[in-house]
Design a protein around this nucleic acid. Structure first.
Length: 277
DNA sequence: ACTATTTCCTGGATGC
DNA sequence: TGCATCCAGGAAATAG
């Protein structure tokens, strides 16, 4: 499930591979629940555009599109932004034209270089959207390098479990189930604790844990659970570093107490009942 | 203004 | 082996 570190890895890989290329034509499938913008608008925005930049914002891939340059050294004239959300099982692939089309391929963009950008998503929780140039904003704050005081205030008065608050993208954009559980373990906070009951000290530790966990995960190329791979088709390695996620009944790496799994906000939540208070 | 619950969707795992 | 059922979860929609 792509969260911030996975999306960062994919977006950076995508940038390296397709920046400067031009989209010549686009095919869009008929599964309209994936589209946040009408298919014709997406096609109009993409066709003929140069891919100026691909990057991450929250869990979104932001692809800046520009009018094609007549000369190599002329300036980019922005055209708009193509926003890709991978949902649970979404993938953006860079393929040679001859590569067999995967099942559940919903968009294919032919590139001037002869390759294709393909969006594949079996579960169709992903979203495709186009917006005006430089207009896209993730719904909440960027967790990496967030302002500490703003972070601490964010949870004030919230009765919801801290785990739910971390998953709320309108507060922080980018943290999902894995990194919420891992950050709470590293800051010794139980996922069910009501956000408002966390002390300043708790929140400082949580802030630090989020920074460390996300940085380590990005360095490892993300976590490969289920079928996540990056733009090159390579797996990440952070799943080997998970201390609680997916480790129900296995011994805590610190105290050997069996890891517990409970459901919070409909999501599996993993914690050590001894280490986390 | 918040919070909790339901819904969308397929494939892999599980059970009989 | 085959078939039914369950489960994974990001985020929008809905209900309270």
């Amino acid at each position: 499930m792509p969260e911030l570190p996975e999306v960062e890895t994919i977006a950076n890989g995508l940038h390296k591979r397709v920046a400067g290329d031009v989209i010549e034509s686009v095919w869009i499938g008929d599964k309209s629940n994936l589209l946040k913008s009408p298919a014709v608008e997406i096609a109009k925005m993409l066709e003929g555009a140069e891919i100026a930049h691909a990057r991450r914002a929250g869990k979104h891939i932001v692809i800046d599109l520009a009018e094609p340059r007549r000369r190599k050294d002329s300036a980019h004239k922005p055209r708009g932004q193509w926003i890709v959300h991978l949902g649970m099982t979404g993938r953006v692939l860079v393929c040679d034209v001859g590569t067999e089309q995967a099942k559940h391929t919903h968009l294919v963009a032919q590139l001037r270089s002869g390759r294709e950008l393909r969006f594949v998503d079996p579960r169709r929780f992903g979203k495709l959207q186009v917006v005006a140039a430089e207009s896209f904003r993730a719904p909440g704050d960027e967790p990496i390098g967030a302002d500490r005081e703003r972070f601490i205030k964010m949870f004030k008065g919230r009765k919801t479990p801290i785990k739910s608050a971390l998953l709320n993208q309108k507060l922080l954009s980018g943290i999902g189930n894995i990194y919420a559980d891992e950050s709470l373990f590293r800051s010794a906070i139980r996922p069910r604790r009501r956000a408002a009951t966390l002390t300043r000290n708790d929140l400082m530790r949580l802030y630090d844990a989020i920074q460390v966990v996300l940085a380590e995960a990005i360095a490892a190329g993300g976590s490969s659970v289920s079928d996540y791979v990056d733009a090159n088709g390579d797996e990440g390695f952070f799943q080997l570093e998970h201390r609680v996620y997916g480790r129900e009944a296995e011994p805590c790496m610190v105290c050997a107490t069996p890891i517990k799994r409970v459901v919070i906000a409909g999501r599996s939540s993993h914690y050590c009942p001894k280490c986390q208070k």
